[in-house]
Amino acid sequence: MDYQHIGVTVLWLFLYGYIIIGAIDFGAGFFAFHAKLTKQDHIINNLISRYLNPVWEVTNVFFVFFFVGIVGFFPDSAYYFGSTLLIPGSVALILLTIRGSFYAFENYGQEGKLSWLFLYGATGLLIPASLSTILTIAEGGFIKEDKHGVHLEWLDLLLSPYAWAVVFLAIVSVLYISSGFLTYYANKAKDNEAYKLLRQWFLIWAIPMIIICQFVFLSLRQHNETHFNNAITHFWWLFGLSTTFFIIAVTLIYLRRAHGLAFIMMLLQFGTAFFGYGISKMPYILYPYIDINKAVVNEQMALMLVIVFILGLLLLVPSLILLLRLFIFDADYVKGKK
């Protein structure tokens, strides 16, 4: 394995970390607003706040590492993605700013208002929806290059079944992952009322989760048949494992057993599917413009970037684990005693 493949693997780990941690955060915001709207906030919002307070500031670190790394390893990505993602990226940045403002008002204000909770919940779904366009555009077919530069074909993007399937997958995944983790968290806190409500939400969102995955595969076949054939021919076993982990996770939660193991199964479910998607897409980052075998920086720079990002991963993951042990999974903190 050469430097570019090692680099892509490390960056894919950063993106996977952001998807999981970000999904829990984004989904928690939506559930907090929904609970407030349905007068159930007294049941779960304290639990959600105990999770969000220690971790919300580190969520975007994984995201920053990924994009800095992509531009560092593959400079052409700055040209192609920078030109085409100006509007979606600006929208995502505005939504992230609104979300950050909520945290400030929530921490220093006297009482959270419904309008702020609405913005918090809405951005929890709109941010992953806007960011999902990156993966959609990377499949190719939406970018045109001519003598005037690179252009995003907006009409093709808006009318694409694959683009909408990915958007809905991002939203459903956020709600599924977040409800799964919060169910485990409520069980660990021995908060029976919150547990019953969150478990119900998890089981509800599990059904759309498996359905939308099928739509994504079917629409991928129509949009990029080469990628689809590579996925089902050479990496079908990764997607088979993902389905198996999904069944185990849902079964354990349904039977009210081994909630920690159920969440691990969810992590493996998304991990196998996410890496199956990424591996089957190789060697292209942006089809057909960015090939990792041709668009990488020089060998010496690639080596230095690999070292830096591996060290970053080795620093970030233990720090996150320490944060979880000190706060999120501390016996007294999880029960709201401190």
Rank of each mutant, 00 (worst) to 15 (best):
H5E: 02
H5R: 13
I6D: 07
G7N: 11
G7S: 13
V8D: 06
V10H: 09
V10R: 03
L11E: 15
L11F: 12
L11M: 12
W12M: 15
W12G: 10
L13Q: 01
L15C: 04
Y16M: 13
G17M: 12
I19D: 08
I19G: 08
I19N: 05
I20K: 02
I21C: 06
G22R: 00
G22E: 07
G22K: 07
A23H: 06
I24D: 01
I24W: 02
D25T: 04
A28W: 00
G29E: 10
G29H: 02
G29I: 09
F30G: 03
F31H: 10
F31V: 07
A32E: 03
F33L: 10
F33N: 04
F33Y: 07
F33M: 05
K36S: 13
K36L: 09
K36Y: 08
L37K: 03
K39R: 13
K39W: 11
D41K: 05
D41S: 13
H42F: 13
I43M: 01
I43S: 00
I44R: 00
I44K: 02
N45F: 10
N45Y: 10
N46E: 15
N46K: 01
N46Q: 15
L47H: 06
L47A: 07
L47M: 14
I48W: 11
I48M: 02
S49N: 09
S49T: 10
S49K: 09
R50L: 07
R50P: 01
Y51L: 13
Y51F: 15
L52E: 09
L52I: 15
L52C: 14
N53V: 12
N53D: 14
P54I: 02
P54L: 03
P54Q: 10
P54Y: 03
V55C: 11
V55A: 12
V55G: 04
V55D: 03
W56F: 01
E57C: 04
E57Y: 06
E57W: 08
V58R: 03
V58Y: 00
T59Y: 00
T59V: 15
T59G: 01
N60Q: 15
N60A: 09
V61F: 05
V61I: 14
V61K: 05
V61W: 02
F62S: 04
F62M: 11
V64G: 01
V64Q: 07
F65Q: 02
F67P: 12
F67L: 13
V68E: 05
V68R: 00
